[in-house]
C-alpha cells in the first residue's frame, strides 16, 4: 500500500463496517437539528441512499462535482434539496444535514494515530463540503423555479378574460404592462375567443399607466392575429399620456378600432352584432 489510491481503503473500510451505527447517529443528529420536522424514518431512508452512493466517492476530491462519477449523487441531492424547499426548510438546514455526517465520521476516527487516515478524513470532509455547497445551488434553483411558477399563477389571476355579453369578451388590463405579461394575456385572450366562439374582444387599458414599444407591438399583433381568426378587437380606455407615447413612438395603430371607454367599446361591439340597446319607456 504505497500509492495514494492504495491508502484510501482504510477510511472506506471503517465507513463500511460502521455503516449502520454511523447512519443511526447521523439521523439522530439531524433529527435534533430539524426539531422534529422530518421523521427519523424519512431521514433514515434518505441517508441510507446517500451513504450508498457516497461510499464509492470516498477518496475523490470534491473539486469538480460536474464529473460523471458525481452524476448519481448530484441527482440525489437535487431531489433532496427540492423536497426541502417545498417543505419550508432553510438552505442552511438543508446543507447542515450533510455537514452533520462529518462530525460522526470524526468521532469514529478520533484517537486513531494513523496520519494517513487523518489525511483521508480531511479529504472526505472537503468532499462533504463540496456536496453541501451543491445543495445550496440546488436549493436556490428549486426556489427560483417556485417563484417563477407562482408569478405565472399570479399573472393568470390578475388578468382575467371575462365574457361580458354573448359573443363579447373583455380583458381589463391593470398596472404596468411588461412584454412577458402582455404576451401571456394576449395568448389567453385568443384561446378564449375560440373556446367561447366570441367574435369581439375588448382590450381595456384604462388601468394601464405606461406602454412601451414592445407592449404596444404585442397589442397590435394580437389585434391582427384575432382578425386572422375571424374576430375583431377593440382597444378602449387609452389615457392621454399613453396616446402621446403611442404617437411619439411612431406606432401605427392603423385601422384598429379604439374607443374612449369600455362602455363605448361594448356599445360598438353590440351594434356590429346587430344589437341595439334602448331604454325602456318608464310609465
Amino acid at each position: 500500500m504505497t500509492s495514494d489510491a492504495g491508502h484510501a481503503p482504510r477510511l472506506i473500510e471503517l465507513l463500511r463496517t460502521n455503516t449502520e451505527s454511523l447512519i443511526d447517529k447521523w439521523v439522530d443528529a439531524v433529527a435534533v437539528l430539524l426539531r422534529g420536522r422530518s421523521t427519523k424514518a424519512e431521514l433514515e431512508s434518505d441517508f441510507k441512499e446517500f451513504f450508498a452512493v457516497l461510499l464509492p466517492l470516498v477518496g475523490t476530491d470534491g473539486r469538480d462535482t460536474s464529473r460523471p462519477e458525481f452524476a448519481e449523487i448530484r441527482s440525489l441531492l437535487e431531489e433532496y434539496s427540492r423536497n426541502r424547499v417545498r417543505s419550508g426548510f432553510t438552505p442552511s438546514e438543508t446543507a447542515s444535514s450533510l455537514f452533520s455526517l462529518k462530525r460522526e465520521v470524526f468521532g469514529l476516527t478520533e484517537g486513531d494515530e494513523d496520519p494517513e487516515l487523518f489525511r483521508q478524513v480531511l479529504e472526505f470532509s472537503s468532499l462533504l463540503d463540496a456536496l453541501g455547497l451543491l445543495t445550496f445551488e440546488f436549493y436556490a434553483r428549486a426556489r427560483e423555479e417556485i417563484i417563477r411558477e407562482q408569478s405565472e399563477q399570479l399573472l393568470e389571476l390578475t388578468t382575467p378574460v371575462v365574457k361580458i355579453w354573448e359573443g363579447v369578451l373583455a380583458v381589463p388590463l391593470v398596472g404596468t404592462l411588461d412584454s412577458a405579461r402582455t404576451q401571456v394575456v394576449m395568448e389567453k385572450l385568443l384561446e378564449m375567443l375560440v373556446e367561447t366562439g366570441s367574435e369581439h374582444a375588448i382590450i381595456d387599458i384604462t388601468g394601464v399607466f405606461a406602454v412601451d414599444t414592445q407592449v404596444a407591438q404585442h397589442l397590435l399583433k394580437t389585434v391582427v392575429a384575432a382578425r386572422l381568426m375571424g374576430a375583431e378587437c377593440i382597444v378602449s380606455g387609452i389615457r392621454p399620456q399613453i396616446a402621446q407615447t403611442i404617437v411619439a413612438l411612431g406606432i401605427e395603430f392603423g385601422d384598429i378600432v379604439t374607443k374612449a371607454s369600455l362602455a363605448d367599446a361594448l356599445r360598438h361591439a353590440l351594434r356590429r352584432d346587430g344589437v341595439d340597446v334602448v331604454r325602456r319607456e318608464v310609465v
Binding site: 395568448e187 385568443l190 375567443l193 366562439g197 392575429a225 384575432a226 386572422l228 381568426m229
Partner: peptide, 28 residues
Amino acid sequence: MRPAVAITLVELGLTLGGVRTALNLERG
C-alpha cells in the same frame, strides 16, 4: 385558425391578402 397559428403568421409577416376569416365552420 388556431391562436398559435395566427400569432405565428403575424410574426412571420404574412397577411392573407383580404381573405375572409371566421372563428368556426358555422360562422363561416
